[in-house]
Amino acid sequence: MKKMQFNFNSTEPIYLQVAEQIEEAIFARTFSEGEQVPSTTEISKEFHINPATVLKGMNILVDANLIEKRRGVGMFVVPGAQGRIVEKRRNQFYDDYVKNLVSEARKLHITKPELAQLIERGFQAK
């Protein structure tokens, strides 16, 4: 089974950690589109997690159209899943960072060209 790690002391529920771990593996192409992901039973046995908890996490990914259930066969990464994750993360990046960056730049009276120069400087920094 591909490497997964769970923090049982975290305040984040285990089912969300399951969903995040599998999503991250799809994003990193550890699980390719069309490839089977570990079963609920495999994950629950290997990591000593209740199967219902694992299933709850996997269902988040089913609802997000990242994996699909094939009755009697298992769960598989759907075509386009990696691209959907990239798009979701780009939107999240915009919401979490870009909006705040522009807001703070306006407060500091940094112009758009000045901000672009600062961003360019950030890309050049090692």
Rank of each mutant, 00 (worst) to 15 (best):
K2L: 14
L115E: 05
V54P: 07
E68M: 05
L61A: 00
E42A: 10
F76I: 02
L55Q: 14
K112W: 10
S10V: 00
K3Y: 14
E68Q: 04
K88S: 09
I67N: 06
K99I: 15
S44I: 03
G122S: 07
E35Q: 11
D95C: 02
Q92I: 08
T30F: 08
P38I: 10
V62Y: 03
G57Q: 07
I119N: 05
R121A: 15
F123S: 05
S32G: 07
K88M: 09
T53P: 04
A81W: 06
V73K: 15
E68H: 01
I119L: 07
I119H: 01
E24P: 00
G83V: 11
N9D: 14
A28P: 00
F123Y: 09
L118M: 13
G83I: 06
E46Q: 13
E114C: 04
P51N: 09
Q82L: 01
I22F: 07
I67F: 06
V102H: 00
N7I: 08
K88Y: 14
N7A: 10
R71M: 08
P79N: 14
M4V: 03
M75I: 02
F123I: 11
F8N: 05
E104I: 15
T11Q: 14
Q36F: 08
Q21D: 07
S103V: 04
S32T: 11
Q36K: 15
F76W: 01
L66Q: 07
Q5N: 12
R90W: 09
N91I: 03
R29D: 11
A125I: 08
T111A: 11
V77L: 04
E20H: 13
S32V: 01
P13I: 01
G57F: 09
L16A: 02
S39P: 05
A52F: 08
K107Y: 04
A105G: 14
E20C: 08
N59A: 01
N7H: 10
Q17P: 00
A116F: 13
E33Q: 09
I110P: 01
E20R: 15
Q117Y: 10
R106S: 12
N100K: 14
M4P: 04
A28L: 15
E87Y: 06
Q117P: 00
G72H: 05
M4D: 03
E87H: 09
N50V: 10
I49C: 01
R71V: 13
E24Q: 14
V98Q: 01
K88I: 04
A25K: 15
L61Q: 02
A19L: 04
E42Y: 05
L61G: 00
R89C: 04
R84A: 13
V73P: 00
T30L: 11
L66F: 06
G83T: 09
I14H: 02
L108G: 00
P38D: 15
